[in-house]
């Protein structure tokens, strides 16, 4: 199968791949940061006392979770210009990714907070800890321990989802594969190299996930 596999072409296109690898990293990094912020806000709204805030967050989360990212991406890509808002492609892509992952982060954070036994908080109050101390020593360490794994899992999904940005002609890893394929008619070299770069990110995040879980959960247990 790999008889005609041409490493020389891959080497020739390596600068393009490195550039696109960097693009994937910063596009997903930026979206990840935005998504966590949006997630925290949406989660706070969902858990708030106000009924209006609760239902706004609910509609946002359910809508995002029930529709595909690609449809959301096209919604912004074709929809914003029709409203007269002209944004560069990369920004449209980052907005779509941020809003998409933000809904999932909201759910992850909510699950992490709600998993904490209320008795823990009561015990903290009874021991005379202040609100900040309770947050710092009781709630947040446990919530972080509960959520670190699904959060990193969502980060992996986010990196993979960023491949869809190639469909609105943003230069990133998948686009690099398409460029190589269309210029040299070598889909095997093009897309397998792209896949290899994604696997590097995946294994790094996975290793980090295993390591952090061991550290955090272990500390909680003792």
């Amino acid at each position: 199968m790999l008889e005609g596999f041409n490493f020389r072409i891959i080497w020739e296109y390596m600068p393009l791949y490195m550039q696109c690898f960097a693009a994937t990293l910063w596009l997903s990094g930026l979206s990840l940061f935005g998504a966590v912020v949006v997630g925290i806000i949406a989660c706070a709204m969902r858990l708030s006392q106000s009924r209006i805030l609760r239902s706004i967050a609910g509609v946002y989360i359910e809508t995002i979770r029930s529709t595909p990212l690609l449809a959301q991406l096209y919604f912004f890509y074709f929809g914003l210009p029709s409203m007269g808002i002209m944004l560069p492609e990369w920004l449209t892509g980052v907005i779509a990714l941020t809003l998409n992952s933000g809904a999932y982060y909201a759910e992850i954070i909510r699950a992490g907070i709600q998993a904490i036994d209320f008795g823990q908080i009561e015990a903290g109050i009874a021991s005379g800890l202040s609100y900040i101390q309770r947050m710092r020593f009781i709630i947040l360490p446990q919530a972080l321990g509960n959520t670190i794994r699904p959060m990193l899992g969502q980060a992996i999904i986010l990196v993979k989802d960023s491949s869809l940005l190639s469909l609105i002609s943003i230069m990133e890893l998948t686009r690099a594969g398409q460029v190589l394929t269309s210029e040299r008619f070598t889909p095997a070299e093009g897309f397998l190299t792209t896949a290899a770069f994604y696997l590097i990110i995946y294994y790094m995040l996975k290793a980090f996930s295993g390591w952090s879980e061991k550290r955090l959960i272990f500390r909680e247990a003792h």
Binding site: A195, Y202, K206
Partner: peptide, 18 residues
């Protein structure tokens, strides 16, 4: 791991073009 570690879009391209 191989399937989880790569985007679905890339998998489709691999199957369709390779």
């Amino acid at each position: 791991d191989l399937i989880r570690g790569t985007p679905f879009l890339v998998q489709i391209f691999v199957i369709f073009f390779i």
